[in-house]
Nucleic acid binder design. Sequence first.
DNA 1: AAGTAAACGAGACGGTACGTCCTGTCTTCTT
DNA 2: AAGAAGACAGGACGTACCGTCTCGTTTACTT
Lengths: 195, 195, 195, 195
Amino acid sequence: MTGEARRPHTGRRRNEAARRAILDVAVDLLGRPGDTPVTIDTIAAAAGVGKQTIYRWWPSKGAVLLEAMAEHAGTAIPVPDTGTLRGDLEAFLTATFRAAGERLTATVLRHSMAEAQRDPHAREQMRALIETRRRVLRGILERGRERGEVSAGSDLDLMVDQAYGVLWYRILTGHAPLDDAQAAELARALSAQAG
Amino acid sequence: MTGEARRPHTGRRRNEAARRAILDVAVDLLGRPGDTPVTIDTIAAAAGVGKQTIYRWWPSKGAVLLEAMAEHAGTAIPVPDTGTLRGDLEAFLTATFRAAGERLTATVLRHSMAEAQRDPHAREQMRALIETRRRVLRGILERGRERGEVSAGSDLDLMVDQAYGVLWYRILTGHAPLDDAQAAELARALSAQAG
Amino acid sequence: MTGEARRPHTGRRRNEAARRAILDVAVDLLGRPGDTPVTIDTIAAAAGVGKQTIYRWWPSKGAVLLEAMAEHAGTAIPVPDTGTLRGDLEAFLTATFRAAGERLTATVLRHSMAEAQRDPHAREQMRALIETRRRVLRGILERGRERGEVSAGSDLDLMVDQAYGVLWYRILTGHAPLDDAQAAELARALSAQAG
Amino acid sequence: MTGEARRPHTGRRRNEAARRAILDVAVDLLGRPGDTPVTIDTIAAAAGVGKQTIYRWWPSKGAVLLEAMAEHAGTAIPVPDTGTLRGDLEAFLTATFRAAGERLTATVLRHSMAEAQRDPHAREQMRALIETRRRVLRGILERGRERGEVSAGSDLDLMVDQAYGVLWYRILTGHAPLDDAQAAELARALSAQAG
DNA sequence: AAGTAAACGAGACGGTACGTCCTGTCTTCTT
DNA sequence: AAGAAGACAGGACGTACCGTCTCGTTTACTT
């Protein structure tokens, strides 16, 4: 007669289909070219969902957008293992730039970062997502250090920021594209800088 | 030779004091802690100005914010001439990071970049401002190349983006500060990468 | 050959306690001072009942309110028999005004009448209730007519409406109280008018 | 050089056309048969007006509705002077019943009274309107008293309520019509009661 | 000095989105 | 079955902000 932590749940359960529809629609609207404003009403209507269903699960519009972005951009970039720092960096950055440079994704990222500047909830989610991503790249650099490819004095965090900085800076300002060549050159530069 | 460009001007002239008040108030409100909403009404009221006076001279809210930001962050970083690339970079980046890292300025930059993502006018102004800044840093690198401190194959634009990328990335996400040490390390890294 | 009319009922039977709780809570909430919103959620929560239990037995919110009102105000006013029309009227109207004039009851009546204007179900129930009440008063008048106390030309329905009209008019607008003195005076007036 | 109470007004003035459109549309929607819900959005849209323009001038939906009703039902019933109480009452009540009994007006009155039960602003306006109307009828009775047609002991307020009570009671419950015959009979009854 | 043109502070306007609230229905597990 | 719990679609509420449009006033240049 042990068990005591009862009340597993009562009442209707969250509708997963609605959740999916909301996030999918959000990405879709966010990625639309032109300055289409992405509204909660618009999202709700397009997802065939009541507004309250959105606000029941997310604290604000920004939170929805950020989660949608995280799911969309969430395809984990596989951590490569080519044996050399430069190879690993090139593989990782090429995949990353390729994913982020894709028009739809880039648009989504742009607006998500903007949203994160005004909505505290979005800001928090952005911080978490950024942190996750930085950790992966930092892991690659640490492995390089273990192999002796990175000098002791190197500031790994700065290197990570140089890479992601280029990515975000270009996405936000649009002054230059993100392509494989850029990724390769950046990999070369960073591994040289490290040695 | 009567000329034609007549009608020099008639009526009241633009009130410079109002212009100043508007831009100053914009920066002030933008920099306020806690998510103070910066609206045109708020700006107009705080500047003791009618809304129409704002819209008479700027096409949109974003345009006001961007101009305010440009004026605030506009203290030109002097182009140093230390004789070496590393010295120049360190001087320039230190001054730049110091200016941008200041709390008020960083907040203004954050929100301006966000505004630039939705307001086409702001976007255009941001692009121009970014371009101006990039050109200065690129000039420093070019001078280094002329001195033979930068290898022929270096992608100067990418180097510029690595520097400004770090700056914006940190301002926007706030995961790490912008200080002199970071600037120095970045200068070291970039000059090493260049050689 | 047990016949066929089997299965008289299966499953759980209607919970009378829940019914009572719902109606009691409805009256209680309706009578609360300060514009407490009386919603289905509020009623369900306060009655410790699921919303569906309400909608299983009543077609709409208005129907619940009206039934609650009918039960609350339902204490049948005894039909008096004093021997004279004026005596009967005075007894009846005094009891009626006393009941309806009570603060809680008046508030419940007010809101029920309002609800009856928008909810068709409530409207129907209100009509039935009104009809029942009118019939009682009309009966008193008819008995007076049989006794020769009411002239042939008198419009009994109009007299009934004069009495209930005063009651509802005062409850709805609150410009004057419903008390024994008013009831007595009205009884006097109506019996004079009838003669 | 006396005058000092300056600043007559500054800024754009209230748009009278918008005010008219709002009130007209409100009456129109309120009077629609069937249980068409009357929404602020609907009113705004039909009047070609922004919602804020409504909320700038009225504190709530109910207040708009009540003012619309007051304007619509506001055609002052002329105070008759036939020389006798019964004549005056008959003239006044006939005109009043005829106006209030008209389908559109009756519907508007019904819903306004309902609104007055939940919206405090509407309630206040209703009270004022009711008071104004009662005063007029009371004036007629007072004149009758001066002529000696009303006995000293008569409760004039009660008589007023008997008349308006019948009117509202029938409008709200719809169990009997308001027509000239009813008005005449009521006039006869009240003047008899008074004597 | 009178006339004319533009800029100004004030503030109402149409429109659009926000986030909350409520209704009546549907779903899940329990009694 | 009926019940408690609670999620759902739909839709109205009242607020906030944007960019535009009057008002009446003030400041400058032109006759």
